[in-house]
Amino acid sequence: MNWAALNFDWNQARAFLVTAETGSFSAAARALNMTQPTLGRQVAGLEEALDIVLFERIGRRLELTPAGQDMLTHLRAMGEGAMGASLTASRRSEAITGEVCVSVTDIFAVYTMPQLLTELRQILPQIQMKILASNTLSDLQRREADIAVRHVAPTQPDLIARKLRSNPAHLFASRDYLARHGPFRTPDDIARAELIGMSDPDELLFFLKDWGLPVTAKNLTVIGDSGVASWEFARQGLGVMPMTRDVAAFFPEMEIVLPDLPPIDVPYWLTVHRELHSAKRIRLVYDYLAEVLQRKKLPGPT
């Protein structure tokens, strides 16, 4: 192999790769936790080192040049190799100190995770827990998190997933909202309700219609990307919202709407990368979460 041909900096190559994948310097800078000017200088440095132009601006968009397209193919392979090396190193590590990042929804982070962390800190005080509270699915293959607790099963073949439980979900509303807009005695009555969601509007409508509720886009009065904020809107009397029974139990002022409507079961999936499953500190946290989430009752209000 001609080692002298490796005449560019991997940091510059990574800057180019992430920019190409995300589509903009600003998004790449956020992903790499650096300033946009620094990232721009790294991409420019790679262009200078290789004596080629990788991007051209078309309006506000970045477009790969033909040379950039060719480089992207090779650097994707390099990126996957670097990621594999990182995962293998994590797997080989037998240390039980260090950080473990767990990705959960913001609802889970606020209402369930505090009790879990209290117990976990007593069992594994030497491990630093990082909680990624996001309703966007974290990419475990790219090490955005080590472990994820989600309501959907992963599709990537390199991930290990276990379905640990299902929690019943109902429609809930505040007593104040029901006093002003109720009663809702049958599913047909929901056609006049104001609905609050925390996901894509089309996905929420599909979910509610599949539940047998005659709703349309006109019913969706508030949609947010934060489950905690949307639930607070419902608590403040702005409308009706689906929620799992374990979370709603924290709030006695929230009542089930249509109690005779069969609940929807919301699954809890625990996911980890196949390689990281063997890293001792990650395995310990994974096993703890698996044990707790399989309990009949999740930690919550007494």
Rank of each mutant, 00 (worst) to 15 (best):
244 T>Q: 08
227 G>M: 13
236 Q>E: 11
269 W>C: 02
245 R>M: 14
228 V>W: 08
246 D>A: 08
256 I>K: 09
257 V>Y: 03
260 D>N: 14
268 Y>I: 14
266 V>Q: 01
232 E>W: 09
264 I>P: 00
243 M>L: 15
265 D>Y: 13
250 F>M: 09
233 F>N: 02
251 F>A: 07
233 F>Q: 06
248 A>N: 11
236 Q>F: 05
237 G>E: 07
251 F>N: 08
245 R>A: 15
238 L>Q: 03
250 F>W: 13
246 D>R: 00
241 M>S: 04
269 W>K: 02
227 G>K: 13
240 V>W: 03
243 M>G: 10
256 I>M: 13
267 P>T: 04
240 V>G: 05
235 R>W: 04
246 D>F: 05
257 V>R: 03
234 A>C: 06
258 L>E: 06
247 V>Y: 04
251 F>C: 08
255 E>K: 14
256 I>R: 09
261 L>N: 09
250 F>A: 12
241 M>K: 03
235 R>N: 01
259 P>D: 12
256 I>L: 11
246 D>M: 09
259 P>Y: 06
230 S>A: 15
266 V>L: 09
235 R>P: 00
256 I>D: 13
252 P>C: 06
260 D>Q: 15
227 G>S: 13
258 L>W: 05
233 F>E: 09
229 A>D: 14
240 V>N: 01
249 A>C: 08
263 P>W: 02
228 V>R: 12
246 D>I: 12
229 A>S: 14
251 F>L: 07
243 M>Q: 15
258 L>Q: 07
253 E>T: 08
239 G>E: 00
269 W>V: 05
229 A>E: 14
231 W>T: 08
265 D>V: 12
229 A>R: 10
267 P>A: 10
238 L>M: 09
227 G>Q: 14
234 A>V: 00
251 F>T: 07
247 V>W: 02
228 V>S: 07
232 E>C: 04
255 E>I: 12
228 V>F: 11
256 I>A: 12
227 G>L: 15
267 P>V: 08
245 R>T: 14
228 V>N: 05
236 Q>R: 15
248 A>G: 10
242 P>W: 02
231 W>M: 13
241 M>I: 13
249 A>Y: 02
251 F>S: 09
233 F>Y: 05
236 Q>H: 10
259 P>F: 05
266 V>N: 03
238 L>E: 05
257 V>D: 03
229 A>V: 13
247 V>I: 15
260 D>R: 15
248 A>H: 03
247 V>Q: 01
263 P>L: 04
251 F>Y: 08
230 S>W: 03
260 D>S: 14
252 P>I: 01
268 Y>C: 15
264 I>S: 11
243 M>D: 15
258 L>F: 11
227 G>V: 12
251 F>V: 07
266 V>Y: 00
267 P>R: 02
232 E>G: 04
269 W>Y: 06
265 D>K: 10
253 E>A: 14
248 A>D: 12
234 A>P: 00
243 M>F: 02
261 L>W: 09
249 A>L: 09
258 L>R: 07
231 W>C: 05
